[in-house]
């Protein structure tokens, strides 16, 4: 059960997480849009997205945390973005590219730990990597370079915090919660988890 090869159930798990999170992403995107419109006249509308940016890495870190096999973070994130595109994301076909970049960031972090360390540190590192990767890309793609540097640094800082909170802390808590219920027994995350007992007494 601890092979590194992907099994059918791993793939479906990634696909499901991808589909579920694509919906989350879309919903959050709409939320961000509303927020940014409110902030628009102040020119700080970019920050509304930075605050929630961490949400966009959740699929990658959560899937990797549950399945714990190489490649999972990258693929799940790409899937989530691809499905997001199908459901009508405004970013156009390039959301898949952003997904790829974010996923690669998370993947790299887990790979640095040789896929052996699964705790808050590795999860946070993965989130921060995702955040920085995508920021570099956006510098060019969204032409952020044309924006003032002070603003950029502030944006990046907010994005890091958001990444750690959402895809680091929250994903870890969610994963641990799942493991405790015992429903992920057949995945790496649940293999050693302590779960509730069935008592021997008769009723």
């Amino acid at each position: 059960m601890t092979t590194k090869k992907w099994e059918l159930k791993d793939i479906i798990m990634m696909a499901i997480l991808g589909v579920v999170f694509s919906a989350v992403y879309l919903a959050v995107f709409d939320g961000g849009v509303v927020l940014s419109t409110v902030l628009a006249p102040t020119g700080f509308s970019n920050f509304s997205f930075e605050i929630i940016y961490g949400v966009w890495f959740m699929a990658a870190t959560l899937a990797a945390y549950i399945i714990r096999k190489p490649g999972v973070a990258l693929v799940t994130e790409v899937l989530a973005s691809a499905v997001e595109l199908l459901m009508g994301n405004s970013g156009g076909v390039t959301v898949v590219l952003t997904g790829m970049i974010q996923g690669a960031g998370a993947e790299l972090a887990f790979a640095l730990f040789r896929y052996k360390k699964w705790d808050l540190a590795s999860m946070s590192l993965a989130s921060v990597f995702s955040a920085s990767f995508i920021f570099c890309y956006e510098l060019y793609y969204l032409n952020y370079i044309a924006l003032a540097p002070g603003l950029l640094i502030a944006q990046l800082a907010v994005r890091f915090v958001s990444a750690i909170v959402f895809s680091g802390v929250i994903c870890k808590l969610a994963g641990d919660g799942l493991a405790k219920t015992g429903v992920v027994k057949s995945y790496a995350i649940g293999a050693k988890a302590k779960i509730g007992k069935v008592y021997d007494e008769e009723d």
Partner: peptide
Amino acid sequence: AAVGMFFTGYRFSA
């Protein structure tokens, strides 16, 4: 979103 981006670009052009 387009409106939001307009203002961002407007305010913070490098």
